[in-house]
């Protein structure tokens, strides 16, 4: 049977390049991969002979492992490039790095870089499909897809759901990609945090709501997502102190009561327990946090299959 969509050879820079139907097609493929990952034997022969390169210029353990596991389970060969231990430390330019890797026969790149637009640059120099694994504050589309999938498989649809995202929105690429994807699937999103950490221009760009008061933000929420407080940013003077943040915005048993009963709790990790979220909530029945991690592998297998599983 032939699909209406063709993601072969496409890039995944962010979700705005993808139609609602294409996002749903990714979610459906993810469901199939999930079944595979629930089996005793988790390996597929699908991408035998393809080579995938994770090109990481910024530290990340979980995202890289998740991608590498996904590629290995699909039988692709995986090579890893880390900025600190590479020729980059010797002064090689990104362009030359990509030329070099390309000469080794890489079929697809997975790129993380602190500078927005780097994945596009890698595509420009390699002419190979590129998956953005996080570029600066810009985008992190596979994280958004795994978040969306986790909600979608639990509640059946995102249509009409009210989703509250709480924390340091300004510095979060996860939020930006999620706002695009959740909106496309018909959810209402409210972002919440201190004024200094929630840009006022978001509603205009993404059609979301902005709320500075946690209680108001959580009202009627079906899903509550906490974001990691980037502790290293406290020096920038954007908030007075972590305890003050916790006092106003922590997700706890007490504050979560303001949302709908049994609202789903999410967090992209890594968590600062005791700062933005308390263990009583992170480890509760309502929490999807570990499901998100498992779905990260599922969603990345689906994307690798759709982008690489065929003639590009």
């Amino acid at each position: 049977m032939q699909s209406k969509f063709n993601l072969l050879g496409r890039n995944l820079f962010d979700l705005d390049d993808y139609s609602t139907d294409e996002i749903v097609a990714i979610l459906e493929a993810t469901q199939v991969m999930k079944q595979i990952n629930l089996r005793d034997y988790k390996k597929l022969p699908t991408l035998k002979g393809k080579t995938v390169c994770t090109l990481f210029f910024e530290n990340s353990t979980r995202t890289r492992m998740s991608f590498e596991l996904a590629a290995s389970r699909m039988s692709a060969d995986v090579v890893s490039f880390s900025a600190e231990t590479s020729a980059l430390a010797k002064g090689e330019s990104l362009q030359d790095t990509v030329y070099t890797l390309n000469a080794m026969g890489i079929d697809l790149y997975i790129v993380r870089h602190s500078c927005p637009g780097s994945p596009q640059l890698v595509h420009k120099h390699s002419s190979k499909p590129v998956i953005n694994a996080g570029d600066g504050r810009h985008a992190h589309p596979t994280q958004a897809l795994l978040d969306i999938f986790s909600i979608w498989e639990r509640l059946g649809s995102l249509k009409g759901l009210r989703i509250a995202i709480v924390g340091d929105v300004t510095h979060s690429r996860v939020v930006r990609s999620n706002l695009i994807g959740m909106k496309k699937l018909g959810a209402e999103v409210v972002v919440c945090g201190p004024r200094t950490l929630v840009p006022g221009y978001l509603p205009e760009i993404y059609g979301c709501e902005v709320e500075y008061d946690l209680k108001t933000a959580l009202k009627n929420a079906d899903v509550v997502m906490g974001l990691r407080m980037q502790i290293e940013r406290q020096r920038e003077g954007l908030f007075p102190g972590l305890d003050e943040y916790t006092r106003h915005y922590v997700l706890s048993k007490e504050t979560i009561r303001w949302a709908k009963k049994d609202a789903l709790i999410m967090h992209p990790g890594p968590m600062n327990r005791g700062i933005e979220i308390l263990p009583e909530i992170a480890d509760s029945e309502q929490s999807l946090i570990l499901k998100q991690v498992a779905n990260g592998v599922n969603v990345r297998m689906a994307i690798l299959f759709l982008m690489l599983g065929g003639k590009a």
Binding site: S3, L8, G309, K311
Partner: peptide, 15 residues
């Protein structure tokens, strides 16, 4: 996911 002709077909099969 087990086809041996994935690299030769140009359309995307439905999973």
């Amino acid at each position: 996911l087990y086809r041996d002709d994935l690299s030769t077909i140009s359309h995307q099969p439905v999973l």
